[in-house]
């Protein structure tokens, strides 16, 4: 059985903004403003991937911040595990 991966929830969308990423959940609707700068591109969330699968070239600190951020997105329903 394949390991669970994460992906953007079908009711959600994400796009790049100057501050980082803007998430939209049509079920609310509600927004999430993420000051991620250029650490993550919106298409990161478009396909199923492991939670540990982060872009290359990040420092350990940046990886930790992003992993916490991904956990928060999961808790808030913007991402789902599948």
């Amino acid at each position: 059985m394949a390991a669970a991966g994460i992906k953007l929830h079908p009711a959600c969308r994400v796009r790049r903004e100057r501050f980082g990423l803007l998430f939209y959940d049509s079920r609310g609707p509600r927004l999430l403003f993420a000051e991620t700068g250029s650490l993550l591109a919106p298409d990161y969330f478009e396909s199923v991937r492991s939670r540990q699968d982060l872009p290359e070239g990040l420092s350990a600190q940046q990886k930790k911040v992003l992993q916490n951020f991904i956990t928060k997105l999961l808790e808030r329903g913007f991402l789902r595990e599948q």
């Binding site: 796009r15 790049r16 903004e17 100057r18 501050f19 803007l22 939209y24 609707p29 927004l31 403003f33």
Partner: peptide
């Protein structure tokens, strides 16, 4: 208020 909204988004969220 929301500082990100006040800074201006690149397009509307919805219309």
């Amino acid at each position: 208020s929301n500082k990100f909204v006040e800074q201006g988004l690149r397009s509307p969220v919805n219309l």
